[in-house]
């Protein structure tokens, strides 16, 4: 069983005997409202997609999935091809299937990902918790801050924007925490 709060992209839950892949999960807790998880689900049998809301403590049947290590081979349009690192099998996913990690997927990345399989079918890919990416553009340091507390916007090669420490410069490599949408962790030692 999984609770509503534990749902995350890549989780597969069983509803009315059908397996549903969580493609997106947004947690909200505000005021007196109960904590809720808004999700985008895809029926793995029919391909039908829907949006749902779960209370954080709703109990759901999760489906045990197979996981294998895989790396990104190439991107062609909206199709992302991953390769099983042990037997070199190629698997394709479209952009929507990996919507939650898409901001951090880019050509040439070497991260060893977790490919998630349902009945021998690749349904999703999860990135490592920490990844390293190069900053493609950012403004110069505004205040000369070296503490890492002052933040500014930066852009990665694939166009993803995130906040980084003020001292980060163009070309720097940074560590990103991929959980909960992705956030800057620090300068990477490359």
């Amino acid at each position: 069983m999984k609770t509503g709060k534990e749902l995350k992209p890549g989780t597969v839950i069983r509803i009315d005997n059908d397996p549903w892949l969580v493609q997106k999960a947004e947690f909200t807790k505000s005021g007196r409202n109960s904590a809720i998880m808004k999700t985008k689900l895809k029926n793995l049998l029919t391909g039908y997609k829907t949006e749902t809301v779960y209370s954080a403590d709703d109990k759901l049947d999760d489906v045990i999935l197979d996981r294998k290590e895989a790396t990104l081979s190439f991107i062609s349009g909206d199709t992302y091809t991953f390769m099983d690192t042990t037997d070199y099998t190629m698997y394709e996913l479209n952009a929507e299937d990996i919507e939650s990690v898409l901001p951090f997927v880019e050509e040439g990345m070497t991260d060893v990902c977790e490919a998630v399989f349902f009945e021998d079918r690749l349904v999703s890919v999860e990135l490592p918790t920490t990844i390293v990416r190069q900053v493609d553009y950012t403004e110069g340091s505004a205040r000369g801050d070296t503490s890492g507390k002052v933040m500014k916007p930066a852009k990665l090669k694939n166009g993803t924007e995130l906040s980084v420490a003020d001292f980060i410069e163009i070309g720097d490599w940074i560590e990103i925490d991929t959980r909960e949408g992705g956030s800057y962790k620090g300068r990477a030692k490359v």
Binding site: I13, R14, I15, D16, S30, N33, T52, V53, Y54, D58
Partner: peptide
Amino acid sequence: NLEYLSAEGWVEGCHGLPSPQANGLRKVF
């Protein structure tokens, strides 16, 4: 499931969405 009142933007995105339960029942927020 009737929720508390809020003017926050996310409310519109969640209002009326189903919450299919493991037991087959379908709750709506």
